[in-house]
Structure formats: structure tokens, C-alpha cells
Design a binder for these strands. Structure first.
Lengths: 339, 339
DNA sequence: TTGTAAGCGTTATCAA
DNA sequence: TTGATAACGCTTACAA
């Protein structure tokens, strides 16, 4: 005599009940749904019909608990308001969805400590794998993944230290756009950087190296602000830059937002772009093509980075041999009117 | 004699093991963590110390299964690349996170059928509640929620049919910006609409009603395209509009993207904004303030909508009495240089 | 090909 | 205040 009925969750229909209705055992129903080839066709059809009729909805918690696999991937991004990472997430989602995996999104707000905290919090979900933005997590981060044996793929940048990564060289990209400005004849090229996360700093390194090589580097032309990027900041920084260094003839902004603000400010100040000052951005977001003049920038394969990273992670989880642990998806300088 | 050790998931440390190490039962450990006031202080401290020392990570699947509560909220949005919904998600996340709830994001791609499909798919997670964008889901949608008793809050728009909703009147907002253009003296005001989702159509209704009232309505001034919105579309539509209707003196674009493309195209065509043609957008995204001239638009409280909707849903889940099932968060016409 | 039994880690129930 | 026991719904291991 059963004694303790408990609160049921969800639709209330269980594998066991489907089995009763179809005249088979629960495990056969499970097999009919998850490995159909292991159940005779007649039985399978009968079961699937019953599943449909009763509106059975599998319980993912029970499944995770029994199988020790959550089919869940944690994705950590520095920001949700920055389109760059949204594009990446969209790429991730497209791949995971098809594979039956669930994406959990953690917003680190560009903070290493929040990133660690989020990782710990999301561990409750027993993620089967993790997608991380950038390479510079605190040491505990890697230690936790190591200890729990959770596979990870690092997005947006490249490394040779053995970690799986999908991205492009931030430093080379910074160098390339700087070289483009040099090639166009600009000589007093400033750098405008916000947030100063690892990617911005690498672009800065590329900028420095290129100008050094051309013997045109001048530290005074670097505008660096650790606060979050905005068009407002781009506008203010441009004004200050030109006031303090009137001979500045070009600005490499670390992202399109700053660049859009800078161009707008040029309009307000009555300065011709690119004749008085050239402006270049980074990322090639949609608005970059619609400023006046259109913005020269660096196109980055954000969507593909997300998709490829997800694919790589799933391969890793499936235990496949990873032929290319380091996927360089490249970038492209897009020359438009602003330079 | 135990016979079947199975694969363990996660960190491997369980409540039971913490209990063993601390000399108490598993259930006491559970209580120490979840309702500390029900465990004596001495024991509690000892337990918490052990939890820390062994690095215990709760297993959310087991918890959901046993408690019949997933602490998970499904959030359905039409798009992830549209900043409007990202802002909403950020508001949702801020509230859910603090409350210990997990957010599952479903991207419907503006499709009713995908929306239904996503709902079905995410039912596996036994969500405790759902946040939905818009009011016009297919009938089965409501039927499923009803049948399973899943509470829902509808975002971005308002209704009086009893559903919980948080938003503002899309129609009134469309009317308000149209009235603004009228007040500035424009008489041949066009409407430019993309995507044609329910919100755009309601803004269109507001536009029509206002122009009808002023006896200035002209159906030929409506540009409607069901394909996704883009700056490109705004540029092309503006050119066509002015070619076919040279007397058009203002355009209400259903969103800022179209408006930004339209303004850019005016620059390319050498048309003065707003003297030759005024442009107004909708949403007040960041770039709206940085076009030349700056864009007149309608500011919408997206972040607050997300946060309030989440709060309302949590109250509903907690079984609290809902005093205001309909929360009108309003909007504001932001008059800038483009009109 | 199908079924039985046990176990996944947690919480609800009831008892002490 | 603490604990024993069963139950949540599913899948693994093993047997038929």
C-alpha cells in the first residue's frame, strides 16, 4: 500500500504512465524516444502514438540526474549590451539548439571576480561544457574546470598554450587597421580606448608595434579610459584629443561605438572627416556603414566564432579527437569614407 | 551488499557526504543550507564549514526533481539582434538573478509557430513561469499554459483581458510621435514600417488615427515591408518614398534602425534634414542621439519593462495577490534635431 | 527485443 | 531540533 504521494511537476504524464497506456514498460518507452532503432517498429509506433495522445513532456531534471549529463552549456560573455557578444551568442545558439543542448548565459560585466562567481553559481546546473570569452581568467577559474573535468573553449582570441580557442588575433587586427591608416598617408595617428579589457589592450599593442616600426609612435596620442565604452565618450575624447594635439590627423577607435561618437562630434565641431581627421573603428557593427562618411573599421567574424566554438566544444564533449585546437577565423579591414 | 555504482556527475560531493563528514544526516545539511533558522547554530556552523571545505555544489536537477520546482523562468523574445529585446532581457535577468531564478532564453524569430515550438521544447525544463513578448500568440499557446498551470506575464504592450502585462501603449506612442510631427508643422507625413509585427502595426494604427483626425491621412504615404528591419531598408525606402511622393515632408519610421538609414540616405542624396524632410524614429537606441542631426524618436522603458515583468511573475509564482495586473510604464517623445 | 531492479541527489513527510 | 524513509522521473546495468 503506497503511502506518500507527492506534488507532481509539469504535465504530470510520466514515462511510466505512457508505458501503462501502451502496454509496455517505462524503459521501453524511454528507448522508443531516445534510441528508436532499439525498439521494434510496431511497438515504437504504438508508443509514439500514445506519447502524442497523452501529451507527454520529458522531465529534463530527471534525465540529467539519471544520466549524469545535463546537456547544458554555460556561456560566459562580458556584456549583453555590446552587440559583439550578442552576435557570438546567436552563433552559439544555432549550433547548440540543433544538437539538443541548452545554453545558459552568464554576464560577467567585464569583471574577473564576477566571472568566477558566475562559474561557481552555474556549477549547480552541472554544465557539460563551458564557452568562455577571452583568455585571461583568474587562476582559480581554470583550476575549477580542471578539477571537475569540465571541457572549455575560449572565444574571440587565440592562444598556443593548449587551450581550445576560436577567434582571431586581436593584436594583428589592431596592427592591420593602423597600417591601413599609415598607408593612407596619416602620420599623427591617435588611439582611443575604452573599457580596457584584454582585447582592447591587445589591439593597442598592435597599434603601438606598427607605429613604432614606422617611427611614428607618440604615447601622448593614446587616450585610454577604463570606464565602459559609449558614443558619448567617443565624442568627448575626440574633442579633447584634437584640442590637446591639433596636429593629430587620424584616430583608431578601439570599437565602432567610440568611432560613431567621434564622427558625430566632428560634425558638431565643423571638422571634415577624413580631411581634417580620419576616423577608424573596430567590429563593423551595422551602424558603421551608415555614418556620414561611412566608417572605416575591422570586420570580425563574431557569429562564426560562436558557432565554431560551440561545435568544437560539442566535439570535445563527445570525446572526439580535436584536430585543430586553435581556430583562427581571421578579420578584414573594411576601408570606407572615414579614412 | 551494494551492487551498482553509477557514473557520478559534477563535483561528486553530495549532501550525504557532507553529512558523513560533519556527523549529521543529509537532510540536516539540506536544512542548514536552505532554511538555516531551522538548525541549531552550533551544528549549522559546523556544517557550513564542512560544505566550504569539501567544495560542495548543490545539484539543481536533483533539487528540481524532488521539490517539483525548477526555479527556472522561460523568456521568449522575437529577436536577439534587436537591442530592444536585449535591454528587456537585461532587466529580467537583474531581477531573476537576485531571486535565485534561472533565465532560459528562447528566440522566436518573430514567428508564431516557432514560438509555439519553443514553448513545447522548453517545457522539458518544467519552467515555473514564462515571460512572453507581445500579446498575439496562437491559441494553443495559452491553452498549454492553462493546462499545465504555468503563470505568464506579457511584455511590451498592454491588454485588459485579464492577462498580466507590463509595457506601454504602442498605439498611443505611434499617435504621440505623429502628433509631434503635426505640431512641428509637417503635413505630408509618411510611415515607414518593417517586420510588421504586432507592435509595428499598432504604431501604424496610432499614426493613422492621428492623421485621420487631422484630415491629413494618405494611404499612399505608407511604406510597409514584412521583411526584417535594417538601416539598408530605411535608406532604400526613403529614396523611393521621396521619388514617388516628392511632396512628402516628414517620415515616421517604426524604429530607429530605419530612421538611421533614412537620415544617412538624405545625406547621400544631398537632402537637408529636417528642412527638406523630417525624420522620426522609435525606441531611442544609443545611436539615435548621435546621428547628424540627432534623431527625434520615442524613448521606451525597455529595461524597466523586463524588470517589472519579472517581478510581477515572481509575485504570481509566490501566490501573492496581484494588485495591478496591467502595468503601464509609459513612453516619452524625444524631440531632437531631425524634426 | 523487452523487462526488472536499482540508483542518480535532493526534499517532503512523518516520527522521535 | 534532528533523523529515517520514501519519493521525484528517468536511465544504467543486467537478465530474460
Amino acid at each position: 500500500m503506497p503511502r506518500k504521494p507527492r506534488l507532481r511537476s509539469g504535465s504530470g504524464v510520466t514515462l511510466h504512465e505512457i508505458g501503462l497506456a501502451a502496454g509496455v514498460s517505462a524503459i521501453t518507452v524511454s528507448r522508443a524516444l531516445n534510441s528508436p532503432e532499439r525498439v521494434s517498429e510496431a511497438l515504437r509506433n504504438k508508443i509514439l502514438e500514445t506519447v502524442d495522445r497523452l501529451g507527454y513532456v520529458p522531465n529534463r531534471s530527471a534525465r540529467s540526474l539519471a544520466s549524469a549529463r545535463s546537456r547544458t552549456i554555460l556561456v560566459l560573455v562580458p556584456s549583453l549590451t555590446n552587440t559583439v557578444f550578442i552576435d557570438t551568442l546567436v552563433g552559439v545558439e544555432e549550433v547548440l539548439r540543433v544538437a539538443g543542448y541548452q545554453m545558459l548565459i552568464g554576464n560577467t560585466h567585464y569583471s574577473a571576480s564576477e566571472e568566477l562567481q558566475l562559474l561557481r553559481a552555474y556549477l549547480e546546473h552541472q554544465p557539460d561544457g563551458i564557452l568562455v570569452t577571452g583568455l585571461s581568467q583568474p587562476p582559480e577559474f581554470g583550476a575549477i574546470l580542471e578539477k571537475l573535468g569540465i571541457p572549455a573553449v575560449y572565444m574571440m582570441d587565440l592562444t598556443d598554450d593548449g587551450r581550445l580557442c576560436v577567434g582571431f588575433s586581436q593584436e594583428e587586427a589592431g596592427a592591420a587597421i593602423t597600417a591601413h591608416l599609415l598607408a593612407r598617408g596619416y602620420r599623427r595617428i591617435a588611439f582611443m580606448g575604452a573599457q580596457l579589457d584584454e582585447r582592447v589592450l591587445k589591439r593597442l599593442e598592435g597599434y603601438r608595434a606598427t607605429l613604432h616600426a614606422a617611427q611614428l609612435y607618440d604615447a601622448k596620442l593614446e587616450f585610454l579610459d577604463p570606464s565602459p565604452s559609449s558614443m558619448q565618450m567617443g565624442a568627448e575624447a575626440l574633442e579633447r584629443l584634437l584640442r590637446e594635439h591639433p596636429d593629430c590627423d587620424a584616430v583608431f577607435c578601439c570599437n565602432d561605438d567610440l568611432a560613431i561618437g567621434a564622427i558625430a562630434q566632428c560634425h558638431r565641431l565643423g571638422l571634415a572627416v577624413p580631411d581634417r581627421v580620419a576616423i577608424a573603428g573596430f567590429n563593423d557593427l551595422q551602424p558603421a556603414a551608415w555614418t556620414t562618411p561611412a566608417l572605416t573599421t575591422v570586420a570580425t567574424p563574431r557569429n562564426r566564432i560562436g558557432a565554431e566554438a560551440a561545435r568544437l566544444l560539442l566535439e570535445r564533449i563527445a570525446g572526439l579527437v580535436i584536430s585543430a585546437p586553435r581556430q583562427d577565423l581571421g578579420f578584414a579591414v573594411v576601408a570606407r569614407g572615414s579614412s
